[in-house]
Simulated scan of single mutants.
Amino acid sequence: MTRTAEHIAEQTADQPGPGLVDVHAHFVTDSYVRQARAAGHELPDGVPAWPAWSAEAHLELMDRNGIRTSLLSVSSPGVHFGDDAAARGLAREVNEDAARVAAEHPGRFGFFASLPLPDVDGALAEITHAFDELGADGVVLETNTHGVYLGDERLEPVFAELGRRRAVVFLHPTSPVCWERSALGRPRPMVEFIFDTARTVTDLLMAGTLERHPGLEVIVPHCGGALPVLADRINGFMKLFLPAAGSGAPDAVEQLRRLHYDMAGPAFPRQVPALLGLVEPDRLLYGSDYCWTPAHGVDAHIASVDAAPVPTGAADWRSLTTANAHRLLPRLAGRPLRTPEE
């Protein structure tokens, strides 16, 4: 049954604050899982099994928890399994799947498009298709693809185009190439994802990518991973080894404060307070990590967010993060989209 605006309001009437915007929400399709398994990802990133996903189950979760809109993206291991042509085809497939879900449920879903990195030409073609034909809300970039991190100079044309479009760039961690030794046999999302996020953001800082392309609107997942703890250390090393960084250009901490951070994962009682030592509350966004986090885990996570202390001046986390999301993604608030010229 199509969910009307009245139905949505009725479902969320007992939830504090406005309907949430979930910027960290995933989907999988049977075709995607089949192709990933064929490429050797039987146990993706060391987790026991692939999750199941359907729009209907996702909407039930959203209605139960007062989530108005979810931005869908493909999680790790992404779409590039070693062959450029196959990656281009899979990126196009999952992006069109996500666009179809969004069109079938207006107002409930948006999506961040996958790109076939490190294939630069394929990524540029998919950026054009995703934004101009499919109406993507942004792109999702894995923290590395086969060891190519996001500060790599070969990816400069991709960031130049995303910056020109003032695109929202949602980062998502994946396993580092050294995971066989570094993960110690444990599931990589537990620790490796957190440090691969810090690794790729540090690479973007050291390469000057964020400073060269101020139009980029970057979302860092999982409360910034290890970045709140490492920010001052990164800043010190940048000043030591990149003297130009100290000649009037924003330092690492200032650049990190310009980014956006979602609250997916165990946000409380420790991670969000640590993050608020680095950034202002207007940089925080809600994220569920569904369907890789199961529904009962999302229920518990959002209950912990609702119960957590709120920054001074904010009514509640729902109002705060939703207002932040509407500024970042004005389409969700019914406002005109930003243009590259703005």
Rank of each mutant, 00 (worst) to 15 (best):
Ala13Phe: 14
Asp84Met: 02
Ala98Tyr: 01
Leu20Ala: 12
Ala136Tyr: 04
Val168Pro: 02
Ala244Thr: 12
Gln35Ala: 15
Gly107Asp: 07
Leu124Pro: 02
Asp152Ile: 04
Val23Pro: 01
Met263Tyr: 07
Ser54Gly: 10
Pro214Gly: 04
Ala314Thr: 10
Val272Ile: 14
Asn95Met: 10
Val298Pro: 02
Gly236Arg: 06
Ala303Ser: 09
Ala244Leu: 12
Gly287Arg: 00
Leu71Thr: 10
Arg181Val: 10
Leu61His: 00
Asp22Ala: 04
His301Ile: 01
Thr321Tyr: 09
Thr293Gln: 04
Ala244Lys: 11
Thr174Gln: 00
Gly163Lys: 12
Leu284Pro: 06
His172Asn: 03
Leu124Ala: 11
Val177Ser: 05
Gln255Glu: 14
Gly110Asp: 04
Ala123His: 07
Arg188Phe: 00
Val21Tyr: 04
Val177Tyr: 06
Leu141Gly: 08
Asp282His: 15
Ala295Ser: 07
Phe237Ile: 06
Glu192Phe: 02
Gly78Gln: 04
Leu205Met: 04
Pro189Thr: 11
Pro311Tyr: 15
Phe237Met: 07
Ser288Thr: 12
Ala85Val: 12
Arg270Asn: 12
Ile8His: 02
Leu275Lys: 11
Pro294Val: 03
Val28Pro: 00
Trp179Pro: 00
Arg212Val: 05
Asp84Thr: 07
Gly138Leu: 05
Ala99Arg: 02
Pro311Ala: 14
Pro51Val: 00
Gly185Gln: 08
Thr202Glu: 09
Lys239Cys: 02
Asp137Tyr: 15
Pro309Cys: 08
Ser31Met: 07
Cys223Pro: 02
Leu210Ser: 04
Glu96Tyr: 03
Arg335Met: 11
Leu320Lys: 06
Arg154Tyr: 01
Ile194His: 13
Arg283Tyr: 13
Phe131Val: 09
Gly225Arg: 06
Val140Trp: 03
Ala91Lys: 01
Gly78Asp: 08
Arg166Leu: 02
Pro189Cys: 15
Ala249Met: 11
Arg100Lys: 13
Asn95Gln: 07
Leu115Ser: 15
Glu96Cys: 14
Pro51Asp: 03
Ala308Asp: 14
Glu153Arg: 15
Ala307Phe: 12
Gln271Met: 15
Thr209Ser: 00
Glu142Trp: 01
Ile234Asn: 05
Ser31His: 15
Asp14His: 15
Ala198Asp: 02
Met263Asp: 01
Tyr32Val: 00
Gly225Pro: 04
Ala160Val: 03
Ala303Phe: 12
Glu133Arg: 14
Ala245Asp: 06
Ala207Phe: 05
Pro273Arg: 11
Gly246Ala: 11
Ile8Ala: 14
Leu43Val: 02
Pro250Leu: 12
Asp121His: 11
Ala52Asn: 01
Ile219Asn: 08
Val218Trp: 04
Ala323Ser: 10
Arg327Lys: 10
Leu205His: 03
Pro250Trp: 05
Leu171Phe: 05
Pro336Cys: 10
His41Leu: 13
Glu6Gln: 09
Val220Met: 07
Gln11Asp: 14
Thr145Leu: 03
Leu320Tyr: 05
Gly138Met: 06
Val177Thr: 14
Arg164Trp: 08
Val28Asn: 00
His260Glu: 06
Asp84Tyr: 00
Arg154His: 09
His260Ile: 08
Leu205Pro: 00
Val279Pro: 07
Asn144Ala: 12
Ala87Tyr: 05
Ala99Cys: 11
Thr322Glu: 06
Leu59Pro: 01
Ala103Glu: 15
Glu133Tyr: 01
Asp63Trp: 01
Ser31Arg: 10
Arg68Asp: 14
